[in-house]
Simulated scan of single mutants.
Amino acid sequence: MKKVEQNNKVKVHYTGKLESGEVFDSSEGREPLSFTVGAGQMIPGFEKGVLGMELNEKKTITIESEDAYGDRRDDLIQSVPKSQLPEDLNPHEGQQLQSQTSTGQVIPVVVTNVSEEEITVDANHPLAGKTLVFDVEVVGIDE
C-alpha cells in the first residue's frame, strides 16, 4: 500500500478542532484539501502528521502550538490612538481590521479593546497558543 512521503501531492479530508472539541475548520461538504508535503504550505505539525499515512487511512493528529501557529506573543498586541484611525471607522471589540507595516506588508488584526482615546489590536493568529486536533483521512496520493 502506498504511503505519504515527502514531496507527494496529497488530498485529505479533515476536521480541525480545539482541545475542547470546538470545530474551527473542516473540509466536510467541500473538495478535499490538496497540498505538497514538505513545501511549507501547511503548518509543520499537519505535514508531519500525514507522513507515513496510507491511502484511505483515517487518523487523529494532535498538534502543539509550536508546530501549529506558535505561541501567543505580547509584542503583537498594540494600542493605537483613535486619532490615527480613519474618521469613518467606528471600531468595536472583535472587529477584524488590516494594518500596514512600514514595509507595506498588510497584517490582519482583531480589535480587543476600545476606550475613549484608543483601541487595542491583536495581530496574533486566532489559533496561536492553542493545541489543535485534526481528524484526517488521506483520499489521494500523487508522486
Rank of each mutant, 00 (worst) to 15 (best):
Pro44Ile: 04
Ile107Phe: 06
Ile77Arg: 12
Glu64Thr: 08
Gln78Asn: 00
Gly21Leu: 04
Leu132Phe: 01
Glu117Gly: 08
Lys11Arg: 10
Val114Asp: 00
Asn8Glu: 04
Lys48Leu: 14
Glu54Leu: 10
Lys9Thr: 13
Val37Cys: 02
Glu66Ala: 05
Gly16Val: 01
Met53Ala: 07
Phe24Asn: 12
Lys11Gln: 02
Val4Leu: 05
Glu116Ala: 14
Asp142Glu: 08
Thr120Ser: 13
Ile43Val: 07
His125Trp: 08
Gly104Ala: 03
Leu127Gly: 11
Ser83Asn: 06
Ser20Thr: 07
Lys82Ser: 04
Ile77Ser: 08
Gln84Gly: 07
Val106Pro: 04
Asn7Arg: 13
Gly40Leu: 09
Gln41Asn: 09
Val12Ile: 15
Phe24Thr: 13
Asn7Tyr: 12
Glu54Asn: 05
Val109Gln: 13
Val37Thr: 00
Asp75His: 05
Gly49Met: 09
Thr60Arg: 14
Arg30Ala: 07
Leu85Val: 03
Lys59Val: 02
Lys130Asp: 00
Lys9Asn: 09
Val109Asp: 08
Val138Met: 03
Thr101Glu: 05
Asp122Ile: 10
Asn90Val: 13
Glu31Asn: 15
Arg72Trp: 04
Arg72Met: 10
Glu22Arg: 06
Gly70Tyr: 00
Pro86Trp: 02
Leu127Pro: 14
Gly16Asp: 01
Phe35Gly: 09
His13Asn: 10
His13Val: 01
Gly29His: 10
Pro32Glu: 02
Val133Arg: 13
Ser83Gln: 11
Val111Ile: 10
Ala39Arg: 14
Ile107Asn: 04
Met53Ser: 08
Ser102Leu: 15
Arg73Val: 04
Leu97Val: 15
Arg72Ile: 09
Gly29Ile: 04
His125Ser: 10
Glu54Val: 01
Gly70Ala: 11
Gln100Tyr: 09
Glu57Thr: 02
Gln84Leu: 13
Gly52Ser: 05
Leu18His: 06
